[in-house]
Computed example of a mutant assay.
Amino acid sequence: MTFQRYVAIGDSFTEGVGDPDPSRPNGLRGWADRVAEVLSTHAPGFGYANLAVRGRKLDGVIEGQVEPAIALEPDLISIYAGGNDILRPQVDIDAIVKRYDAALARLAATGARLLVFTAYDPGGSAIFRPLRGRFAVYNEMVRWSADRHGATIVDYWRIRDLRDQRHWDSDRLHMGPMGHQRIAIAVLDTLGVPHDLAVELPDHAVGSRLAAWNEHAAWTRQNLAPWVHRRLTGRSSGDTVSARWPTLTTLDAGTAGRVG
């Protein structure tokens, strides 16, 4: 299966946070870039855009990215949104999925192949495990909406090997390079696109209890505290961030250039 124009929309998950590459916009690569690199090998003149911005809640994705994505006339669209809403102290999941469903209807009406994601299962996380019920309810409603609009589901919830922390960034919230690689593999497999991507995890590092305590203390200071502070003050990590690839771009593993 080949695609000519792929547009990715969403939040930090799709922007690529946790997968650093200083040579690319925002210093990131991410699973969507990895998917685009493979898709480009199957279609001459392939174009890719990534409108995702970290910290965006569902309404921000819908209001700022859906229409610009449609204007690029893609034949493949991916969307992941709602995760940042679920992490808020109060959330009406029925209300956000109602708006999500309307956005999927708008995207599906273009005739493009539409990819949607369930949310990750936080059951293995001591920090986010209390929200597991919210994520499960959200996922069932996303599946309902995807079925309504003929969208293809990439079931993030069921990728159990992602519980291995070697897939994750040191912030414990975003995937690291191998996590993004694993999602790229899941996307390409779901689409039925041939590829030779593989996950190569580093060896387990065995440290002392003191080292583990120091690591946790550093994470609390450097990652958890700023995250909580942004939510208390109504700020977002994406307030000063722009979309990485706002126009259609040719992309391979080493180079990128605008095509339209």
Rank of each mutant, 00 (worst) to 15 (best):
R231D: 05
L107M: 13
I62A: 01
R160I: 09
R172N: 14
H195T: 12
T255H: 14
L162V: 10
H149E: 07
A43D: 11
Y48F: 15
V142E: 01
F117S: 00
I86D: 01
G111T: 13
A253F: 09
N26V: 08
G83C: 04
E73L: 13
A102P: 10
Y156T: 12
R158C: 06
D75L: 09
H216K: 13
F46E: 02
A32Y: 00
L76G: 02
G192I: 13
Q65C: 06
D164S: 10
D169H: 15
D21G: 09
I183C: 02
R106H: 07
L224I: 11
S78W: 05
L58A: 05
G176I: 04
A256L: 07
T41F: 00
A8M: 07
G150K: 12
E63Y: 09
G60I: 06
A108L: 04
T249N: 03
V61Y: 02
A198H: 12
K57W: 05
G150S: 10
F128G: 02
D161P: 04
A184E: 05
S23V: 13
R231E: 05
G260Q: 14
W213E: 12
R24S: 03
R88F: 03
G30F: 00
G16H: 03
G254L: 11
V17E: 00
D19L: 06
F46T: 08
L251W: 01
R29V: 02
G192N: 10
I93Q: 01
R158A: 12
G260L: 12
V154F: 01
A151Q: 03
G150F: 10
E140N: 14
P122D: 04
I183N: 03
L197E: 08
P25H: 11
A108C: 07
G47A: 02
T220M: 13
G123I: 10
L107Q: 04
A103L: 08
T233F: 02
A186H: 06
G45P: 08
D75S: 12
V116I: 07
T110M: 00
M141Y: 07
R129Q: 13
P44Y: 06
W213D: 12
V7K: 00
L72I: 12
R166H: 11
A8W: 03
H149C: 06
S170W: 11
F3A: 01
L115Q: 00
G64L: 08
F117P: 02
I127M: 11
F135W: 07
D75N: 15
W219K: 10
G18Q: 04
A218Q: 15
